[in-house]
Design a protein around this nucleic acid. Structure first.
Lengths: 195, 195
DNA sequence: TTTCATTGATTGACCAGTCAATTAAAAATA
DNA sequence: TATTTTTAATTGACTGGTCAATCAATGAAA
């Protein structure tokens, strides 16, 4: 075992293991031993690096949040028009990387956790605000402000709605059809505007 | 303490207590003792009537499901047109009785639980199918079949989406604005159709 | 005197978090 | 260079607490 800078490696491994464990169990009801085992270390080490289970879970959520944020930034950079910006944001949420069993399960579990944990709620609010302002950055050029606001809320709810409803289907998640419904919603609102 | 037919009374009290406990804790992470205490009985009695915690939770979910179903039937009975049928279904989900902290928390918690419990998943599927077919009963008269299908999916996702996003806001749930977004979605699709 | 309602006490499992002990690399010192 | 010392990484074993589930015992109506 090398001695140099194990900490970042172990933290990353433990966070990945947490997502995988949550994905398999389908809830936050996972033990530190299980997580640590998946990461190939003892549960004592997980406590050593994260202090408490809570902090590991929060770190995991922050990781999910930052991955999604990075994907969104990349997608937005490639979008030339306001319309494309909105489509890009929808696409990101249903990309193969994001719309995955483990990740979806983790998001849902965190939503539930947010009801009792102020820290989690704060993190989720960051996500919600960021999504909203990203969506608005495109929508305000396409619709009157009040209308844009409404559509942004609708798209956000649709995204979370399809995430949660994923729990009903078994087998591979069908991202394409979910994205199609949201895109259709957007197009309909835009067509209506032009008319 | 009367002796006659305590069972239905106690079952009802325990189910109500379960919803209240879940609502307060914000998750299914509630103890049998807590639930039993709220119902004014010992945890042993809860086990006596329900056998296991799992069955109490399932019974609670079945209760939620049947309340929602009853409300939906009542609302549909008063709807004269296909358009009103759809509006009525939206309204039911955001009525004061349904869109309540405790009930919302319970639905979300059950969604998460459904990921690991086949029994819960089955129950949620019943809810989803019923909502879908209720929505379609109005939409097929208003839109071409494929379009109706798409809108039904959209409305269902919006409802669940606003339920889950309720977790982000604090204070009283704002049902009116959620319902407004969904109604706007519906109207937009109908106007588009006429054009 | 049978049958239903009810509980206190107990058990057994599980689990987060702690800690003292071990290894080995790295840094400091001779 | 050879040594001692410090520091980081790591774990097995343990503790305290929690909780679902069981059960034998009590009460009280029919």
């Amino acid at each position: 075992m090398p001695k140099v800078g194990m900490e970042p490696l172990r933290r990353k491994a433990l966070i990945d293991a947490t997502i995988s464990a949550i994905g398999e169990r389908g809830s936050l009801d996972v033990t530190m031993s299980d997580i640590a085992g998946r990461a190939g270390v003892s549960s004592a080490l997980a406590h050593h690096y994260f202090g408490a289970k809570d902090e590991l879970l929060q770190a995991t959520m922050r990781h999910l949040l930052s991955e999604l944020g990075a994907d969104a930034r990349t997608a937005l950079r490639a979008a030339a028009t306001p319309h494309q910006r909105v489509l890009a944001l929808i696409a990101v949420n249903f990309s193969d990387k994001q719309f995955q069993a483990g990740t979806i399960a983790a998001w849902l579990a965190f939503y539930v956790e947010a009801q009792k944990s102020p820290a989690m709620r704060r993190l989720l609010r960051i996500y919600a605000r960021r999504l909203h302002s990203n969506l608005m950055s495109g929508l305000v050029r396409l619709l009157p402000r009040a209308e844009a606001e409404r559509v942004a809320e609708g798209i956000a709810a649709l995204i979370d709605g399809f995430y949660i409803r994923r729990a009903l289907k078994d087998g591979a998640p069908n991202a394409a059809s979910a994205a199609a419904v949201i895109e259709d919603y957007l197009e309909t609102k835009l067509v209506q505007q032009k008319a």
